[in-house]
Write a protein that binds this DNA or RNA. Structure first.
Lengths: 205, 205
DNA sequence: TAGATTGTTAATCGATTAACAATC
DNA sequence: TAGATTGTTAATCGATTAACAATC
């Protein structure tokens, strides 16, 4: 289990999501072949990926889905729920807060922040919008490790620096720019336009 | 220009975004070194990527930013605006419709659809919510090539099939599951939980 | 037992990096 | 001219695939 490539790690949540979907549909067993077809990845790749972490299947019969799900939850460390803070309560921040499809997948928003005095103190969905000035202090105190960043591009780096100062180690960044962080901090980027532009390349004008 | 690897294509929008940000900050020239630091990619990689499409720099002085931006817009085919349809007007669909940071990056939402009779016909931001029953017909007629999919997981595959039938070739999928599409159709996935789970792997419990 | 499917090894394939001549 | 930086080549590195013995 020494130093699994990140590209392998990046596929595990996709496997997990497909397996959980299978359970909902009443399946209890699958094969690397079948799972591969669902997620668009080769069967050999799936077996190779899983083999990084142990042996989860049986020759001849494949994988017990609940067992594999449980194993993946453990590997990804999402068998319990992580506390996450949300920074930036614009249109997008609001939508994320109201969405709440996170908890049963391992994450719970515990607080939300903004810098706008008109927003601070107002309530959304049982959350009081807090002052970003308290972010560092609060994050340290509650030992928050994860954050979602929904502020405008113009203040994203500044807020990122605060998150890092507060001890946050993983940032889901919705602001449309690349962030500078220390090597020990992870960032995942969500910019729908990047995806659209990437696909536009393949279209004919 | 024969068959550029998709991994190269996937980085171009990131370069573009960083370059456009530089322009806003009044810069007119950059180097592969400087751009690389901004986006967290090696200088050699950037030069190699760009070399797939031509020569855009000058030895000794680097790249003229407006020229490189223009070149990337052409390469990615986003120098004009693509019409996009939005399907699924729940919480998320609403937020996307209200957001509208798409147009100046190459995309414009031209219509939105839902299947809920209570929603069909209502207005949001000058958009009338249309009946998903008309999706195939409308998409064909308007020659829509791109769609954003914000329906629940349970109906995502069904709606995807409609999009494909309507001639859509690129789908930005917000539903938390893998979609089955013909090989000539592209899908980009946006599931924040996948990003969070991927980062959770590296955290200590 | 026969068929199915795993986990793993070796081979192949592709992507990244280092280095440098060319040249602005 | 000297310094800087490109575009490109070759070397390195890493990821994917094919194949198969093991075994349920």
């Amino acid at each position: 289990m020494t130093d699994v490539p990140d590209i392998v790690v990046s596929r595990l949540p996709v496997y997990l999501r497909a397996l959980q979907y299978m359970v909902i549909n009443g399946k209890s067993t699958t094969s690397s072949q079948e799972l591969g077809e669902k997620v668009g990845i080769s069967a050999a790749q799936i077996r190779k990926d899983l083999s990084q972490f142990g042996e989860f299947g049986k020759q001849g019969t494949g994988y017990n889905i609940p067992f594999l799900i449980d194993s993946l939850l453990q590997i990804l460390k999402v068998e319990k729920v992580w506390d996450v803070v949300l920074v930036g309560m614009g249109e997008l921040g609001h939508a994320i807060l109201r969405y709440q499809g996170f908890v049963n997948r391992g994450f719970n928003i515990v607080a939300c922040y903004d810098s706008d005095p008109l927003k601070i103190g107002t309530k959304i969905n049982n959350y009081s919008i807090l002052d970003v000035k308290d972010l560092v202090k609060d994050a340290k105190k509650a030992e928050i490790k994860m954050a979602m960043l929904c502020v405008p591009a113009s203040s994203a780096q500044k807020v990122t620096d605060l998150l890092v100062e507060g001890g946050v180690l993983a940032i889901l960044n919705y602001a449309p720019l690349s962030l500078a962080v220390p090597t020990y901090v992870r960032v995942q980027y969500i910019d729908p336009v990047i995806g659209l532009q990437r696909m536009a390349y393949y279209l004919n004008k």
